[in-house]
Design a protein around this nucleic acid. Structure first.
Length: 710
RNA sequence: GCGCCCGUAGCUCAGCUGGAUAGAGCGAUGGCCUCCGGAGCCAUAGGCCGUGGGUUCGAAUCCCGCCGGGCGUACCA
């Protein structure tokens, strides 16, 4: 598969060559090639004569005549050339050039790669987006960033960049500590205690669910029941079986733990040894016990926590001590006559769990972050396709949602952060120390701002850590970094740009150029429901999540809506409209065109058209205005992809899709495709096929499904 | 106060990096199914592109000043 030049590129080369021949002494000019709105002015117009005329002090009309003399007309590319009033050169593209593009589209082997271009030249680019704080489910702005970022990644990939997507997890700092405190409160509540969510914490319901993960209710029940029989075991066969079934098979557990060891702690050999020892001990312990000893539950429980990637302050012996303590604790409770019936055993178990979790130094923040990141990942993976209720009807398989190439943890940057600060301090040119804190200042006079990097408490700020993070990106070899941030970060853009400029002076070897970092702001989304805005606030715990959107309007509609607007403009998303009038939706309009073509092609196949697209179709028969409109639009697609990627504006693809679908519907309405006229039918089937290819190509660029029937 | 984003049809937004007579969807009104998919098509109405200057052959687009809306402006992230 090779990429050919777009028609615009071909024309530009031709005009430049003509210009160079007409005015050999003139160096390269910044000439423009635009598409006139008015059809009478041709397909393209160039201001070459006006620009050149001005430079050389010539009348633009005369310059235009000189240039036009040097353009070969007619040629396979250009049908005719015309000079208009101030000095425009209007170019009519030859039909052969359009038909050539049409052929290229229809014969291109892979629709999901059509439009590929060498523009990026394998440049190593990172797109970082969503990067929501791990303090709750993904909200609407995250959904928007996800749609835009994913489309951008696909767009850049299509145009020859070596792109990696990244999600940055802010898993350290005050907010995360607060999150841990909040989870701890929920945990206490789950144990039956009265406990308030701390001031400024996170009252959302999702933490209750996470807390219940820590205290699996059924484990407690099972445990309490088992302890009703003498010596913590049971003679009842059914009960024994149930108890045994409560544990995973030994081999399964081993496999699970091995995988855990590989994934989570491979990076740190010391940690690995500790864990390995712990698990070996655990297995030894476990194998020594009879299956019906349900008190085995406790090591299982400890293991369960470990498998979630949590660290413990104690070692295995400590845990065994705890387990022993638990047994005697429960026995003691038994002696005092506590039974399952009065709920005493349950609460005894709860109290003990509370103590255990405190005793092993359970890290609530880490657990909460791990838990939330997991749900965020799951949400993103579901971010594809039509709404669930239509999925079967539209015949779309659950496709791959959004997967990031990497998830980067802020907590892994500790070393980089320290080093960054040391480097800046020893350089000295851009730092100020005052009021016990360390500040960064811009280099030049016009940027007199100063920002704290290290607090007087000695703690680094988010700003410093973000500088270190971006330097880390550069060190990983990215030649260009694109960040998509939420609206609350837009004040951060300026100082980050300043910081990168500073870094380029302090660490010149990194070669951080002026536009190495490009930041897009995914602006605010106002959800309109029942005609009024839905208020969103993390603090109140009430907001519309990505999951809500996917289940209510579907990922296709959500993505399309987000990509219909430039990402830096505010957006009113009318949820009622998106659902209520879903039949009038632009998404369905576009998808309908796709399904319609599939249906036509199927109809043709059943009526004796064996090969589609018909290889011998005479495309010159496509001469109706509606057909030419469609062809011109198709022929412009590769150029659109190129320009959208350069401008980092994926929303242009959706605009294009609506336009193309409209032109196709118009064509369809005025011309029957399959008729008695075999030659004409062949040509029109060819056209239909090409339209479908481009629809697929464009839809795949923005991550939206292309159903064959609806 | 300073900085960033946004003002285009009743509503929500495009407008291809400065081009010629301003573009969609929704909403309104009126038409089109013996026929490959009517989730479609056609027509009508709706605009001083917030406003005043500037740059030039030419501005919705670039620059400056106002006016309106939103958001930043923490030793939060």
């Amino acid at each position: 598969m090779t990429a050919t030049k777009t028609i615009r590129q071909q024309l530009e080369a031709t005009v430049r060559a003509a210009l160079a021949r007409a005015f050999p002494e003139q160096e390269e000019l910044r000439l423009e090639l635009s598409r006139p709105r008015e059809k009478a002015f041709g397909d393209f117009a160039t201001n070459a004569a006006m620009v050149a005329g001005k430079k050389l002090g010539l009348n633009p009309m005369d310059a235009a005549r000189k240039i036009v003399e040097e353009i070969e007309v007619p040629s396979p590319l250009i049908a005719s050339v015309d000079i208009k009033k101030p000095g425009f050169i209007n170019i009519e593209v030859a039909r052969s050039a359009y038909l050539e593009k049409l052929r290229e589209i229809a014969t291109f082997p892979d629709d999901t790669r059509y439009g590929m271009a060498p523009t990026g030249r394998g440049k190593k680019v990172q797109v970082e987006f969503v990067s929501a704080n791990p303090t709750g489910p993904l909200n609407v702005v995250s959904a928007r960033a996800a749609a835009v970022g994913d489309a951008l990644v696909r767009l850049l990939r299509r145009t020859g960049y070596d792109v990696r997507s990244e999600f940055y997890i802010n898993d350290s700092g005050t907010q995360v500590e607060l999150l841990g405190e909040s989870l701890k409160a929920r945990f206490r509540q789950a144990l039956g205690e009265k406990c308030e969510i701390p001031e400024g914490g996170y009252p959302g319901e999702y933490l209750t669910e996470a807390a219940e993960e820590i205290v699996p209710e059924k484990m407690l029940q099972s445990l309490a029941q088992a302890l009703e029989s003498p010596a913590g075991g049971t003679d009842d066969a059914a009960e024994r079986e149930r108890a045994a079934g409560f544990l995973p098979a030994l081999e399964d557990e081993r496999e699970h733990i091995d995988r855990f060891l590989e994934d989570t702690i491979a990076a740190n050999p010391d940690e690995r040894r500790n864990k390995r020892t712990y698990f070996d001990d655990y297995f030894a312990f476990r194998e020594a016990l009879e299956p019906e000893h349900v008190s085995l539950w406790m090591p299982l429980y400890v293991c369960h926590l470990s498998s979630l990637g949590l660290t413990f302050t104690g070692d295995m012996l400590d845990r065994l001590v705890w387990i022993e303590r638990f047994r005697s604790y429960l026995r003691a409770q038994r002696v005092e006559g506590i039974t399952v019936e009065d709920g005493g055993m349950m609460s005894a178990g709860r109290v003990f769990l509370g103590e255990l979790v405190e005793g092993v130094g359970f890290d609530f923040s880490r657990f909460a972050v791990a838990e939330i990141v997991r749900t965020q990942q799951a949400s993103l993976e579901r971010f594809y396709g039509p709404v669930e209720t239509l999925r079967a009807k539209l015949g779309v398989a659950p496709g791959e949602g959004l997967r990031f190439d990497s998830w980067f943890r802020e907590s892994s940057l500790k070393h980089d952060v320290d080093e960054m600060l040391r480097t800046l301090l020893s350089d000295g040119r851009f730092v100020v120390e005052k009021e016990g804190a360390v500040w960064l200042k811009g280099g030049d006079e016009e940027d007199a701002n100063e920002w704290v990097m290290r607090r007087s408490t000695g703690q680094p700020t988010y700003f410093l850590s973000d500088i270190a993070y971006h330097v880390n990106k550069r060190k990983r070899g990215f030649e260009q970094v694109i960040d998509i941030w939420g609206p609350d970060h837009h004040g951060h853009v300026g100082r980050m740009q300043t910081a990168m400029k500073v870094v380029s002076h302090v660490l010149p070897d990194l070669e951080i150029g002026e536009d190495w970092l490009r930041v897009l702001i995914a602006q605010q989304v106002n959800l309109i429901k029942d005609g009024s805005r839905v208020q969103m606030s993390k603090r109140s715990g009430e907001y519309v999540t990505l999951d809500d959107m996917v289940s209510e309007v579907g990922a296709d509609v959500a993505r399309f809506f987000f990509l219909m607007r430039r990402c830096n403009s505010h957006l009113d998303f009318d949820v009622d409209l998106a659902m209520k009038t879903s039949e009038e939706n632009p998404v369905y309009y576009v998808q309908y065109a796709h399904a319609r073509i599939s249906s036509i092609l199927e109809f043709a196949r059943q009526n004796g058209y064996r090969e589609i697209p018909p290889p011998l179709a005479d495309l010159a028969l496509l001469a109706a205005e509606e057909e030419l409109e469609v062809i011109r639009t198709l022929a412009g697609f590769d150029e659109l992809v190129r320009v959208s990627a350069l401008a980092l504006e994926p929303h242009r693809i959706t605009t294009y899709l609506v336009d193309l679908a409209g032109k196709f519907h118009r064509f369809y309405h005025n011309h029957r495709v399959v008729t008695d006229d075999r030659a004409l039918s062949d040509a029109r089937l060819y056209l239909c096929f090409a339209v479908r290819s481009i629809l697929r190509s464009a839809l795949s660029l923005i991550g939206i499904s292309a159903p064959d029937s609806m």
